[in-house]
């Protein structure tokens, strides 16, 4: 039995030029067109808060916002994001001045190893912006794209409840909103 190699190019593929606008800052890039948004953020721009958990769109660790919507950056080609508004965990609070969602995750111990945490937090912000934080069951359902193998789910729900409250259906005003958001 022989594994057939796929035909391959002898030379590098044409490079693609585009600009990633991340947390309000422009980053011109010239890269291999196959580069994912995740690898562009993590490896090229050094924004290592966005994590690779599966590289297959099944775990949510790489969740970022593109034009205000939560997306899986591992399933998004970087070149598709030319001049779109990208928000990552680095655009939230700092260690000394945490964003309210980061603060709530800390207080409720909503993480253990911390690897899925930036994705959970970006997803939590997305869910509040979508008005999907109205009840524990709703939070559980709409946070189910973010796997936490340490099993902090109960505390993640508590943290989001803490920030979102219930009266406004979980809409948070302090979610970073991108201009020209897409439906």
């Amino acid at each position: 039995m022989t594994l057939q190699a796929k035909p391959h190019a002898e030379e590098s593929l044409p490079q693609t030029e585009f600009t990633l606008r991340v947390n309000g800052r422009d980053h011109p890039l010239r890269t291999d067109a196959r580069l994912t948004l995740l690898d562009a953020l993590h490896d090229r721009l050094g924004l290592t808060g966005t994590k690779k958990g599966c590289d297959q769109g099944t775990c949510g660790a790489c969740t970022v916002h593109v034009d205000g919507r939560r997306v899986l950056s591992c399933l998004t080609l970087a070149a598709q994001c030319d001049e779109r508004e990208i928000a990552t965990v680095e655009g939230l609070g700092t260690e000394d001045e945490l964003h309210p969602v980061q603060r709530a995750f800390l207080e409720h111990d909503a993480f253990q190893c911390g690897y899925c945490t930036p994705g959970q937090i970006m997803s939590a912000l997305g869910l509040m912006a979508e008005g999907r934080a109205g009840s524990p069951d709703e939070i559980r359902e709409y946070m189910s794209g973010n796997i936490c193998r340490c099993g902090a789910y109960q505390n993640i729900v508590a943290a989001i409840r803490d920030v979102a409250g219930t009266e406004d259906g979980g809409r948070a005003d302090d979610v970073p909103q991108a201009e020209g958001g897409r439906p």
């Binding site: 808060g49 939230l92 945490l98 800390l106 911390g114 945490t117 930036p118």
Partner: peptide, 21 residues
């Protein structure tokens, strides 16, 4: 008490092995 490494983890600044370059 809150995790002493918590602020690093919730800000995405805790360095995991594949964050090193």
């Amino acid at each position: 008490i809150n995790r002493v490494d918590g602020p690093l983890k919730v800000t995405g600044r805790a360095p995991y092995p594949n964050d090193f370059a």
